[in-house]
Design a protein around this nucleic acid. Structure first.
Lengths: 168, 168
DNA sequence: GTTTTAAGTCAGCCTTGTTGACATTCCAAG
DNA sequence: CTTGGAATGTCAACAAGGCTGACTTAAAAC
């Protein structure tokens, strides 16, 4: 599924100067700032940080996910995640239910309050993304996603592709 | 939400469902991990962090830049930057020279040792970027950059565009 | 001569990452 | 039934790298 598109074999020469690549790197750096700017503002108002955002996002995306699964998606230690998760549970944004089949596992879901925060964050981020897409045009969107996927490490690509997708 | 599986091919109206936007957001998140993974490894070996990388990158990019200019590009406080800059100067990677015209200013340049680190970091990062570009194809590269630029905040876009560019 | 600007420094705080050690629970294999 | 190991949680300590606020020094600007 990863790469079956026509390899640029025949004219596989992309003229990629160091300067062009450098501009790509810098674009990534500056764009990521924009990407996180709106959520950061909302989070700060409510006393949370990016770590909370990430947790809320992926719990929303995969309701009932286990702590271990979340750990491997987020790529942090359980101690680090636990601190964040604990405050979210205490504040009533996340619910942790002991597994029925395997009672060692905890299944995480958002509460109404948690969904409300997720809404606010993802609305802001989607608006930014939509504006960027509109400015760049439909063809750009395709290319954007393709390059990003190609930039991921294998593990992360696997996680990315595993997320429920309502079609490209 | 019934059926949006058809890609909006070359339509000027973008059908941007929440799901599509969400996948873009997640792609950005996972890709940024890949983007920083290689430099992070190199930095760790040498006892530096991403903050050092950013400083070294932009000093290399704009030799002789002042501290104030660097501050506005990086978007951090001078106390934060100073801590990083001090270790780089102590370790002999960066040189700080009093300005000739305005003696309040310090002009920052990389030493040979600094250039060596910058080389290692940017080689790794460019290789990743080049591979991603190759996998995605030439048209994707255009779109990638366009969306990223559109995603930047105004200030950052200004900085980005101001960086010397040896042509697209 | 006063004010403003550029830079540096000190102290302290916060978030979010890390290790390491250890307790608990409980599934599953022997 | 017992035990090993997996999944989770928790405590403590630490580090990087953000932040604010207060303050100094030097030089430029007015």
């Amino acid at each position: 599924m990863a790469d079956q598109s026509a390899p640029p074999s025949s004219e596989s020469l992309l003229f990629l100067t160091d300067e062009q690549l450098r501009k790509g790197i810098e674009a990534m750096f500056f764009a990521y700032r924009g990407f996180t700017a709106d959520p950061d503002r909302i989070l700060e108002e409510r006393g949370y940080g990016r770590a909370h955002h990430r947790a809320v996002h992926f719990i929303h995306r995969s309701p009932g996910t286990t702590v271990n699964n979340l750990l491997s998606i987020l790529g942090v230690t359980k101690q680090s995640l636990n601190r964040v998760l604990r405050t979210l549970i205490e504040d009533g944004l996340v619910e942790s239910k002991v597994g029925t089949k395997d009672k060692r596992e905890r299944h995480l879901t958002l509460t109404d309050k948690g969904r409300e925060l997720e809404r606010a964050l993802s609305d802001a981020q989607r608006n930014r993304m939509r504006d960027a897409y509109r400015k760049a045009g439909p063809e750009a969107v395709q290319g954007f996603r393709q390059v990003l996927v190609a930039m991921m490490d294998g593990d992360m690509r696997r996680h990315y592709l595993a997320l429920k997708d309502a079609g490209q």
